[in-house]
Design a protein around this nucleic acid. Sequence first.
DNA 1: CTGTTAGCGCTTTCAA
DNA 2: TTGAAAGCGCTAACAG
Lengths: 361, 361
Amino acid sequence: MAASGVRLSDVAQAAGVGTSIASRVLNGDPTVSVRPETSERILEAAKTLNYRPNAFARGLKLARTMTLGMIINLAYSENLELIASVERRAAISGYVTVLADANEFVERGEAYRRLLLEGRVDGLLIATGMGSNAFVRELYEQRLPLVLLNRRLRSGGPSVTVDDAQGVREAVRHLVSLGHRRIGHIGGPGEVDVSRRRLAGYQAGMRAASLEFFSEQAELELPAEEGGFVAMERLLTAHPRPTAVTVWSVTAAVGALAAVRRGGLEVPSDVSVVALHESPVAAFLEPPLTCVQMPLREMAEKSVDTLLGVVEGNQVRSTVIRLPAPRLVERSSTAPPRASAPAAPARRVRAAASSARAGAR
Amino acid sequence: MAASGVRLSDVAQAAGVGTSIASRVLNGDPTVSVRPETSERILEAAKTLNYRPNAFARGLKLARTMTLGMIINLAYSENLELIASVERRAAISGYVTVLADANEFVERGEAYRRLLLEGRVDGLLIATGMGSNAFVRELYEQRLPLVLLNRRLRSGGPSVTVDDAQGVREAVRHLVSLGHRRIGHIGGPGEVDVSRRRLAGYQAGMRAASLEFFSEQAELELPAEEGGFVAMERLLTAHPRPTAVTVWSVTAAVGALAAVRRGGLEVPSDVSVVALHESPVAAFLEPPLTCVQMPLREMAEKSVDTLLGVVEGNQVRSTVIRLPAPRLVERSSTAPPRASAPAAPARRVRAAASSARAGAR
DNA sequence: CTGTTAGCGCTTTCAA
DNA sequence: TTGAAAGCGCTAACAG
């Protein structure tokens, strides 16, 4: 039971004209010259009848749905920022956004079938690291209108990303400038390409300062907080212990901070922590978390523009969003290392770790 | 440039039949009896051609878009849980979900126009407290297929909510059972009906224990963390100070915990804190946060089922989801009050508050 | 058992 | 300056 019920023919009839000019007047067709009075009547009728053209009929005729699809992991609440940015930008261009959870995408590409093959969308934004590159490449080869968001593919179609490596290098640089030498890294799940780029940034930063790496990757299955917790626990067993750690996301850093505390150590006096990305929670954590803010909104908006370019059939290129540049927001989780780094390893508190996990259930 | 390009007629041709039976076979029309061999050929052809019926053409014909709209505030990351639950449940019934930001909805109901009047969706889920009740009632009166999610309207169409009051009462009960008498409440923005229901639950709980109320409402404009921070700061100026506080959401509680710490007090020894809802961060906060888990997923799923009922033209009723019942997840942010409640007011640290705010920028 | 055909609401060519 | 009519891809009478 469709809601509206007022059709173009109703408007035309009310204005005493045919549907043909009604359509052209309402769409502002410049090639048609109607007598202003007629045009007036049509606009008037449309307004009083509260007329809105049926999107599906229009889509059928024009082979344009004015709809974009977005495939993204709906389990990570950080992702809502990307979703919101995409939705808003798409709306400005008159598009609506339909969501598909990344799992569906991975599971035999069902999402892509539901959206693209059924002609529900004009193009697809793939904003998940899940799904094999081979599969994505296959989609590209079918010349489907899609762009990768926050993911890159060596060879393949257009993508829009930020400079993750640069962001982490910024974090490392900050720590080095504070005097840290033993700096660790907690990376995201290794299968995901953003994780790899962030790890690479960490390594580059360390190399630039002639320092040694040590990093731990969070696992994909865990909630990010717990992944950060577990990884930090492992990092603290190193001898000698790192005096500072870069973390791949704020959410993971929440867990990492907890791990330091429950290990009987303090941030920042024993361990400094910097996280990639910025978030409203950062300022309220214990201690307030130093972050590197990345241009995520700009990335999301650019991905929409790029996709619309593809849809128009333009030649588009992959983009790395570099502006605004990654900005270090200094809070209290970073400080110079203690003059005398204690040689004793961190007190491991296994019980605390498992109770945290139990609590998270 | 639509992606697919394979039409029903292609399948029919490949199978050597007309589009008519092809359609009916593919849709499993039971009233038609075709020779199994023919049916076989059609199915076969559809599979090899990778045929998927065009959703827009089908929607046009059937006056069924197989699409649901969801209006929700995309600025609150907690909302992603509702979005994900709705998306998944809709997908099971073969529907896709399109999002609209609550702001658009409020701004002269633009979202509702884009989605419902343009016939893009079969029904609309309104999951925002924004937009006046009068406006929503007006939509109901136009007999539009919509259901309110996490919001109620005194008189009006169907809604699906949880028992917020019961949740907060549970929280109060827990605190009372620990021996607290001076229990405060940090509520959400007062304009939103969930906030009012939670406040009512607090009041009911306090009344049941013959205790006096004192509460502060967060403001709508602030990020929830900061709203919680500011409200807690204000609550701590009361004489005598509350020994425990119930908070309307985990996100707000993050700020509330920070306010207690920066006021030079400790959780739970000076102030116990319980938050409504459960979240992966709760276990990793300092201290780990006691929560009341609410059946949000069940609520979201039920709202989809209800909306589909409306779309089918069924008589549907408003529902309050009570199962699973609100569950208190006890962590370390709650404890019995100190035997000798200190008479001295909390040390106010104004500077800390403003620095937190500055940091959040 | 299977094919022909009308029509969903719209845009657009073509003719008047 | 305007209208008639075809057709987007599909479903469902209705005929055969």
